[in-house]
Amino acid sequence: MSFILIRNANLYAPEPLGVQDILISHGRISAIAEAIELDTNLPIETLDAQGQLVCPGFVDSLTHITGGGGEGGFASRTPEMNLSHAIKGGVTTVTGALGTDAIFRSHEELVAKVKSLKEEGLSAYFYTGNYHFPVKTLTGSVQKDIMLIDECIGIGEIAIADHRGSQITWRELASVASQARVGGMCSNKAGIVLVHVGPGEDHLARLFEVAEHTDIPIKQFYPTHINRSAALLDQGIRFNKAGGVIDFTASSTPEILASGEVKCAHALKQALQSGADENRITFSTDGHASLPEFNSQGELVSLKVGAMTALHDELKDAVLIENIELETALKTVTLNPAKVLKLPHKGQLRLGADADLLLLDAHSFEINSVMAMGQWLMKNQTIVRKGTFE
């Protein structure tokens, strides 16, 4: 089809724009208006979205697209994601990362998966590095990876406050951040440092030390898992108020919640009630990561896998249970992560933006249809495009 015209859409861009028509052509949004009329002999696919909400496709800033290294041995290594995992969760942009294991999970494998997901219809990016320091890269340099590899937009997950990390010092972390910052500046990319924050009691101390002792701005760091505990959430709110962006992990388990993790949607409510800036809060899935539960001796108790449907689940809970405005909740999974990752054509519905969008039931917020780059991946709750080997 040359054109796709969606009529009578209750549009959240993510700000509410009321009932609008949306015209899509060549993978981009060509027009948004109350009533679009076309005088053309070119083929047009028309869809009536009456009774549905239309919002941007979700931007997932942390997905272990090649799977994660299992903390329970080789048999516990988690599986890689498939295209349908993202579609079911309304995710149209993924950002891949390595985690604990950078021996059997490689950057070469990560880049190949990114490129394959792009061929299958998603927008996909990745972080160089992993939990550990010295940093492993593809080219031998964080700066080179960011500048020379199109899909590389930063470094992560580099671990702090975690027994599985390298116990990185603030000076070492500042050096890594400087390399990422310069690489981003020289290539007009985010150059962001995604920071895995573990359960250690020093929480965000390393990030505050870098901000105190250097000229590197606090917003250079993007700490995730901030809802891991009430104490970490308090520090995360402080970090947010100091100008930083914080990320809440949507994937969880009953065991992890019972150990003190704050449910993602509820963490958002607490942060907003504490005066945090809603424009500097994001959700990510941690999809396909291992979700381990450790005892007080650091021994593995249980392990499950992060789900890519978690963003959608927590968005619904934020609105329907926590009574957060839909516009505010939507920002955490659309516009806010797109801004952090410096992806100006993602996370919003506007003229010229990529045609990544979701049709949601106006009452239950269940996903009806998914479009990525102007192509339908799900239509009327039926997946119409699957991965190559699904």
Rank of each mutant, 00 (worst) to 15 (best):
A13L: 08
D21W: 10
I22L: 15
S25I: 09
H26P: 06
H26S: 15
A35D: 14
D39H: 12
T40E: 04
D48T: 01
Q52K: 13
L53A: 03
L62M: 10
I65G: 00
E71Q: 06
R77L: 05
R77E: 10
T78K: 01
M81R: 07
L83R: 04
H85T: 08
T93G: 03
V94Q: 06
A102H: 07
I103W: 02
L117C: 11
L117Y: 09
S123K: 13
F126P: 00
T137Y: 02
T137C: 00
D150I: 03
E151I: 03
I153S: 00
G156W: 00
S166Y: 00
A180E: 05
G184D: 07
V193R: 00
E201R: 12
D202N: 15
L204Q: 10
T214C: 07
K219L: 11
Y222H: 09
N227M: 04
A231I: 04
Q235S: 10
V245F: 15
K263N: 08
A267P: 04
K269E: 14
K269V: 05
G287S: 14
G287V: 07
L291D: 01
F294K: 06
S296L: 12
E299T: 12
L300N: 07
K304M: 10
D317G: 03
D317L: 10
D317V: 08
V319N: 14
E322N: 10
N323I: 04
E325D: 15
T328L: 10
T332A: 11
L335S: 10
N336G: 10
A338G: 07
V340F: 15
L343M: 15
Q348K: 14
L351E: 07
I367S: 12
V370T: 12
A372I: 05
M373F: 11
W376A: 11
L377P: 00
Q381H: 12
I383L: 13
K386P: 05
G387T: 07
